[in-house]
Design a binder for these strands. Structure first.
Lengths: 143, 143
DNA sequence: CTTGCTGCAAACAGTTTGCAGAACT
DNA sequence: AGTTCTGCAAACTGTTTGCAGCAAG
């Protein structure tokens, strides 16, 4: 699964004529070792600890490439930071975001996915991707 | 409908001990006269044309109040600007966003709404609100 | 050796904040 | 009169960009 992702990026890089660099390898490794909607800053710090001398800008630029290559996806929650999550082929999950403790639960629902396609078709839309977030109080915070 | 909204804000203001000011009235009027996901900047310019001397900061501060009072809702698309849309009681619509021409089509689907509630219930979540955006190409841009 | 990639710092854009004066109650 | 609200400008935050040097092909 990690290897697949690396291959995915290599293929993308090859098709775009991008060069293979140490930084991109490191950033990909660290990104693949994370879970759950990591922010650019968080990733940057993680990288820096094991690999100082990788700049902010490179992390931003590289994450954009990951998103473009299809292995990551940009998500915007309401905290003013751009976050990235892994794209898992053939799977799409959405988010339940707790407005009290900021925890995030993922879920997937095939029926919703299907309805989305129907709606898009009804409006002549060709779906590229979508996102859904439900905000509320998680079970812990309701107590 | 516009009157309802004004009342809604007045009630909120009263309950919070907020003062009634010319600026807030103007901003509410202009906001209520708009449609479709207006950005703070757009709203600010609209206000300024008929009512110079209303500051950026006040528009930001006031829109936050509108959101808090329940008559507006903050939405984040992928263009780096915070936008606000009207909250219509008992109705929730979602967005089809064209990634080519940036047009936005609203839609509503009761089945999806119901599924969301089921999902939230299954995870012990108490829904406050949610949003769903489908990105893709609109019928015009597909041609 | 050519061109793309990187790190740095400066630039940017959107948003927030501190403060003195104005306005509401 | 007392306190909230406002406008302004400055500060902030996250992100992007220009550029000289470095490194991959």
């Amino acid at each position: 699964m990690i290897l697949e992702k690396k291959k995915m990026f290599n293929d993308f890089a090859a098709s775009k004529g991008l060069r293979s660099t140490r930084q991109r390898d490191v950033i990909l490794d660290v990104f693949l070792s994370t879970h759950q909607h990591i922010s650019v800053e968080e990733l940057y710090l993680k990288i820096k600890s094991s690999n100082p001398g990788v700049g902010h800008a490179t992390v931003y630029r590289t994450l954009k490439l990951f998103a473009e290559s299809g292995l990551a996806r940009e998500i915007l929650l309401h905290d003013g930071q751009t976050r990235y999550e892994h794209v898992i082929a053939g799977e799409h999950h959405d988010h339940l975001v707790c407005t009290s403790c900021n925890s995030i639960v993922e879920f997937e629902d095939a029926t919703i996915e299907k309805l989305q396609e129907e709606i898009a078709a009804r409006h002549g839309f060709q779906i590229k991707n979508h996102k859904m977030e439900i905000y509320g109080l998680c079970s812990n915070c309701r107590k």
